[in-house]
Each structure stands twice: as C-alpha cells, then as structure tokens.
C-alpha cells in the first residue's frame, strides 16, 4: 500500500513508481510453467499482485506485461474484464453479497439494506475508514442457505439483517 500511496504523490506517472515485488515476480514466473503460452498466467499474475496490494495499481499492468512478455493492453483488457480483479483501491475487507435468484427469493435485499445502512455505503463503494468495500456477486453456490455473502475468504449463510453488526465485528 505504501508504494502505491507514494506513486500518487509522485510527479511521474504511476508506472515509474510501481515495483513488482521479487516474491510476486517469482510466483508469476512459477505460474508460467502451468501453461503452453505465457498470456495464460495473466489472471493469476493479477491475483498475485492483488493479494499483496489489495488491488491492481496502474503501474502493475506494464510490470506484469513485461514478466509475461505480452502487451500491456492485453493485460489491462483482462484486468478490466474480470469482476474480482480490482482496478481501484478497495477496503481491507471485501464483502461480496450474492444477488442472484435464490438469494433474491430469500430476500437478500433486506440483508443488503442492513449492510448498506450499517456501513453507510452502497454497492461499489468503500467505507471512508477503508475498512469495507461492498460488491454484488454472481450466485455464490450457497443457495440452500440464502441469503448468502462472503467476507474475504469466508462464506456465510443464511444471514439475517440482524446478524450484520456482529458478523462485521470480526473484521477489523
């Protein structure tokens, strides 16, 4: 996060400021071995960077492209396509609320209203303290216990609107 903050105050473009962590570079190179062509490691590379920074800063795009030996536009095209690759900063914890049919029928809308009210944000927004980002997600495959949501790597369901406050407490 610090290198990102630095890049914003830097007069040069962000590309100059982003340095791919050695460990991440090695992880990306390791991924290359799984595929016939380097472009295939693109999504995993973006995820590797995102795991460290929480999102994919602008400068990471050409950095990844260089490791993969592909065009930066190809990497950006991929980065902007996939919903779980974040191209702007997100909170420390990302809440994914399932808004698909089974959760719709079990009233995810009340759950969303409770989350939205508790956090003071809507879908696509991050709390001012940088703690939570709220996003909708495709059917989470937890339809037998809807409405369902994920916070980071944890899946919950069924979640009642009343459960929200206590549930969020665990995520500082």
């Amino acid at each position: 996060m610090n290198s990102t903050a630095a890049s914003r105050t830097d007069a040069r473009i962000a590309t100059d400021a982003f340095i791919l962590h050695d460990e991440d570079r090695r992880a990306i190179v390791h991924e290359l071995g799984h595929y016939e062509q380097p472009q295939a490691a693109c999504i995993e590379a973006l995820k590797i960077v995102q795991r460290r920074h929480g999102w994919v800063p602008d400068g990471a795009i050409p950095a990844i492209a260089e490791v993969l030996g592909v065009g930066a536009a190809d990497v950006e095209g991929v980065a902007t396509f996939y919903s779980l690759i974040f191209r702007q900063p997100v909170g420390r914890h990302v809440i994914l609320v399932c808004d698909s049919s089974s959760c719709f029928l079990t009233d995810y809308e009340s759950l969303y209203a409770s989350l939205s009210e508790t956090l003071g944000i809507c879908f696509g927004q991050t709390t001012p303290d940088g703690r939570f980002t709220l996003l909708p997600v495709c059917c989470l495959g937890a339809c037998d216990r809807g409405p369902a949501l994920m916070i980071d790597d944890d899946t919950y369901g069924p979640v009642n609107p009343d459960d929200v406050a206590e549930l969020l407490e665990a995520y500082a």
Binding site: Y35, Q37, Q39, D74, G77, V78, Y82, S83, L84, I85
Partner: peptide, 22 residues
C-alpha cells in the same frame, strides 16, 4: 482459479479465459 464472471462457465469462453484472455 478464476476471477469472477459467469460467462467463464461457457465451454469456449472458459477456454479463452484459461488462455488468459477476456
């Protein structure tokens, strides 16, 4: 592992995604 998008479940889109494209 994927990074979201329902369309990846479509057989040929899945192959595009596996190849690291949209």
């Amino acid at each position: 592992t994927g990074a979201g998008r329902y369309i990846c479940g479509e057989e040929t889109a899945l192959i595009s995604s596996l190849e690291g494209s949209r």
